[in-house]
Design a protein around this nucleic acid. Structure first.
Lengths: 108, 108
DNA sequence: GCTCCATTTCAAGGGCTCTTAAAATATCTC
DNA sequence: GAGATATTTTAAGAGCCCTTGAAATGGAGC
């Protein structure tokens, strides 16, 4: 992942609805969720959910697959991990104090 | 760190100038850098740098201290770590694949 | 073919962000 | 005190983002 992609990813994560959707999709696992289920779960209208899913999709944080008339979305764990990794390596210079937080250090 | 703070932090990181500033400040270490040095280093006008430093400051990703007429900025490693930690714990449900990226796994 | 259903697209509006340049504030040196 | 320096504040304009509701797309079943 490069800087431009990371900027897009961070922008995608800076909205409450999109963060809620991503959280939901990560916890939903590999099966993913249908667009309608997502909209209902996060309390957004279908068009609003679609708008934000499109944003997450453009940022490559989620993937989608269409079966008949249903669209299933899934969190792209590799992309999410890649974003964090880029941030840790390139932006945080592998800083030890910051890295410790991934392990669950108490003082973060 | 809570959701609202995390949203603000992600928003702050979604701009190239601010990301560059943060990267610079992390690498600069505890001594920090003066506003003017930062502006020059990232290729921004003083007012533009000040604008973005203010954004990073409101997002609590950097701290500042004023000595006479010089203002020194430092990266807030604890806040940066806290943001990542919140994202990993709350949003990524401690997902193993995502977490592995902090250790530098090859497949991220 | 017609009608439902799931989802996306479109259009309009209001608000926020970014950039630029000028002005203001505060401090240092002479 | 005068002038130079460091930084912030302000103002204006352009552009993007978010929300809402209506319209459009396209598949399923009768």
């Amino acid at each position: 992942m490069e800087e431009a992609e990371t900027l897009t990813a961070f922008a995608a994560l800076s909205n409450a609805t999109r963060l809620r959707i991503l959280r939901l999709l990560v916890s939903a696992g590999p099966a993913g969720l249908r667009a309608g289920e997502i909209a209902e779960a996060v309390g957004a209208s279908p068009s609003r959910a679609s708008f934000h899913l499109s944003g997450l999709s453009k940022a490559r944080l989620v993937t989608s697959s269409q079966t008949a008339r249903e669209v299933v979305y899934r969190a792209d764990l590799q992309a999410i991990g890649g974003m964090i990794r880029y941030f840790m390596e390139d932006c945080c210079s592998e800083n030890e104090q910051i890295r410790a937080c991934c392990f669950g250090a108490k003082d973060c």
